[in-house]
């Protein structure tokens, strides 16, 4: 039986008010890369779940999204499903629900200022091409404490 969990619904709607615009037309689903190739990833169902306060919506499944933004492009109500799903991911991360590799990837960025690790080979290649060397930076670490 479907029940609306008003507590979680309220919390979600505070953070993601644009959810309410969705009229469940399904355009995002048939535009979605993940739904077609990976399967069982319906942005529409996730949005409906969020509207009903269904906590099951917060799962590793959210990371099936290929970030192609086709849903945002086509949504006729301006719900921006990609943005909505990103915000749901934020909520999931706060509840410690996310794929293992995910935390590592974002840690590298905060710690080193770059998305990939830099080693000697990298700078050797750059030098050979006449480019300046690059070093990890601490400039993004202030974000950690935010």
């Amino acid at each position: 039986m479907t029940r609306i969990n008003f507590e979680f619904r309220k919390k979600v709607l505070e953070e993601i008010p644009e959810l309410k615009k969705c009229f469940q037309c399904g355009t995002c689903v048939s535009s979605c890369y993940a739904e077609k190739y990976i399967g069982s990833y319906s942005p529409r169902k996730k949005i409906l779940g969020a509207l009903y306060g269904d906590k099951e919506v917060l799962s590793k499944e959210l990371w099936k999204c290929a970030t192609c933004n086709a849903c945002d492009e086509r949504c006729p109500q301006g719900v921006n499903p990609y943005e909505v799903l990103t915000k749901l991911k934020n909520i999931a991360v706060r509840e410690n629900i996310c794929p293992e590799s995910f935390r590592e990837k974002s840690d590298i960025i905060i710690e080193t200022g770059y998305a990939f690790l830099i080693d000697e080979k990298v700078n050797n290649n750059r030098k050979a091409l006449g480019l300046k060397e690059i070093k990890p930076k601490e400039s993004l670490r202030f974000v950690k404490n935010g």
């Binding site: 469940q24 399904g26 355009t27 689903v29 048939s30 739904e35 319906s42 086509r74």
Partner: peptide, 20 residues
């Protein structure tokens, strides 16, 4: 609501949609 139409053989339109 179909998201797009693509063209199949014989120029037949193929409608792509989610059946909600």
């Amino acid at each position: 609501r179909p998201s797009h139409i693509k063209e199949g053989r014989d120029k037949n339109p193929i409608v792509i949609t989610e059946n909600v």
